[in-house]
């Protein structure tokens, strides 16, 4: 979904259909991500999550409201550097980068994909365990993580798995 062409192609859809239809389409294209939400967390989780968000922003007017006027730069990486993904938000758009970015507002360094999943979607205080167990370390402005956490949970809700 990172490609500019796809983005341009998908952009008119929310104006043709209701939000519900947009979410249904997003659900169809996000099966892999939905499986990960339901427990099968693999190394592709971050990438799928960010791309799923990107797709949902294109298809759902309601979800896109989350990034209206929002500017933010996120870097997600594992401590061993095997996974590095970034996301930038600007002028109502999201871009996913498969490389590190500079000048991030927040950098989230996580032990592995399940740790990040627990950090973002946890119930019953796993989020605290993640920080305490050094499974996840946050550098920068924590408020950006809170915002991202809301968007991630909003996405899972819209995909019917939240």
């Amino acid at each position: 979904m990172a490609s500019r062409m796809k983005r341009i192609a998908l952009r008119p859809l929310p104006y043709l259909f209701t939000d519900w239809v947009g979410q249904l389409i997003a659900r169809l294209f996000s099966r892999k991500l939905m499986r990960q939400f339901c427990g099968e967390v693999t190394d592709t989780f971050v990438e799928l999550l960010l791309k799923g968000m990107d797709l949902a922003f294109c298809l759902s007017k309601g979800f896109r409201k989350n990034i209206r006027g929002f500017e933010g730069r996120y870097l997600f990486q594992t401590a061993d550097g095997l996974i590095v993904t970034s996301a930038t938000f600007r002028k109502g758009n999201m871009r996913v980068h498969e490389a590190a970015i500079d000048d991030w507002d927040v950098r989230v360094t996580f032990k592995d994909a399940p740790a990040l999943n627990a950090f973002l979607f946890s119930k019953d205080q796993d989020i605290l365990d993640s920080v305490l167990a050094d499974d996840v370390e946050v550098d920068g402005n924590m408020n950006y993580v809170y915002k991202f956490g809301f968007m991630a949970r909003d996405l899972s809700r819209r995909l019917g798995v939240g």
Partner: peptide, 30 residues
């Protein structure tokens, strides 16, 4: 802002849930 991630789920959390309406969630978020 630490409540931001759980705005949609805070009324259902196991311990000490808070009631919040959908429009309040949307207002806080946007």
């Amino acid at each position: 802002l630490a409540l931001w991630p759980e705005l949609w789920t805070i009324s259902k959390r196991a311990r000490n849930p808070y009631h919040i309406t959908d429009s309040e969630v949307k207002h806080l978020n946007s």
